[in-house]
Nucleic acid binder design. Structure first.
Lengths: 232, 232
DNA sequence: CAAAATATCAATCCAAAGATGTAAGACAAT
DNA sequence: ATTGTCTTACATCTTTGGATTGATATTTTG
């Protein structure tokens, strides 16, 4: 029995018809790929995806109106297994970050050699996620920056450090939306005791009510820190 | 005046003395790098970093006790500009993700060719962030998965969709810790009106009090969605 | 051991929050 | 024109929340 290797079916979405034609020809030349269809708008493209169920989608990200990013998100939401490769003119860190965040399996610049696009297609078709090295570096700048900011919120003299372990328990239950009665029941202590703890928490966190206490806790990663502490 | 190109100073931290020696020799052979020091534990290494201020740090991530990840976090907190390259035996997606999250500028496997490590050193010394292609793919699997989960919280029939725009405004102010009076003042409406809105919000979100409403809002990305909507 | 911090409980008081019902004017859709 | 939704508003009542003071047993720590 002769083994039949099926070509990977690719759908191309690009509002620039010239560029679209160029990409189509490039892919048609490759023996391992088949162009399943083309579209010049995101909406048309999404309809074609539903119809033809391609393995790969090349999505131009610089389209007007319904922008490419949103289109990628919608394609992901369909869950038809279509792997989207973003094709963009910009190596903007934030754009790369957002594209990868919503589920793009690759990101290639239009200015890159066509061999690079073919390589990306190969990799993504094989189930990998592909980003050119230069863009990877860009991506990580943005990625690490976003976590750096998160940590700044953590430092800045954290008032949570002054809480006793019992107060932490109470605050934890507060951040789950419990009222006095609920907390008292869960900790097997009286409601008045809970009131005492809660009042002490307010003093230490310098807030006026439970909502502000909960917000302070959430904004300062209280839950995560607590879980980390518990794990030790 | 003869131009003097200074060698990039590298500090190596690895509890395996054999491996440490190997890496040291490898780097010593390179004309563009200088081994500023070596250490066999994270604590010793951190002290040497404070002392010698190297541009690069190669950190073995499979060390016992104070594990390598925690050490990287501490080095980053020093803010001495030392760029850390993680050296690990494992291509575990979660490990790569966490290393990059806390600020590693590179991640190289021990099993990789030594040329790969030198290449990583070059790239990172030049201010870039370096991950081998294979590990990039691994990283993104984890990265995208974490956001996939976040979106599940978003879908699941979101009760926030039922709020009117005015109720959204009120909820927004609730999530900032305002009480009735504060909200009334900011929206230039009476306190009783605010009460009406808040009660309607409770009904729609199926909660009993403001803390639960705020928690629901935060757990369902209310703020982000609102900002996204405003931007349109 | 003594002093300080923690955890528990109670009483009281006032303020704030929440539940419920009613209603009028604005505005959009049909 | 009429219906429906939204926004505004008020009254009333009950419940919950928050502040304060004081007290006791236990634990931690210097």
């Amino acid at each position: 029995m002769r083994e039949f290797k099926r070509r990977t079916r690719v759908l191309i979405i690009d509002d620039n018809t010239d560029h679209l034609r160029g990409v189509k020809e490039l892919i048609t030349l490759e023996s391992s790929f088949d162009v399943a269809g083309t579209a010049t708008s995101a909406n048309l493209g999404i309809n074609l995806i539903k119809k033809y169920r391609p393995e790969l989608v090349i999505m131009d990200i610089n389209m007007p109106e319904k922008d490419g990013l949103q289109a990628i998100a919608e394609i992901e939401k369909l869950e038809l297994g279509a792997k989207v490769i973003a094709l963009s003119a910009y190596d903007d860190a934030d754009l790369i970050f957002r594209a990868m965040k919503i589920g793009a399996k690759g990101y290639v610049l239009k200015t890159m050699a066509s061999a690079q696009l073919i390589y990306a297609l190969d990799e993504v078709a094989a189930g990998k996620i592909y980003l050119p090295t230069a863009l990877t570096s860009r991506f990580f700048e943005h990625f690490q920056l976003s976590f750096r900011e998160e940590e700044n919120a953590n430092s800045a003299e954290n008032l949570l450090a002054y809480l006793t372990s019992r107060e932490e328990e109470v605050l934890d239950l507060l951040t789950q939306g419990n009222n006095y009665k609920g907390i008292a029941g869960k900790l097997f202590i009286s409601e008045t005791t809970v009131k005492t703890h809660v009042n002490n928490i307010f003093q230490k966190l310098q807030v006026n009510d439970r909502t502000q206490a909960v917000l302070y806790a959430l904004n300062n990663n209280f839950t995560n820190k607590r879980r980390a502490k518990m794990a030790v």
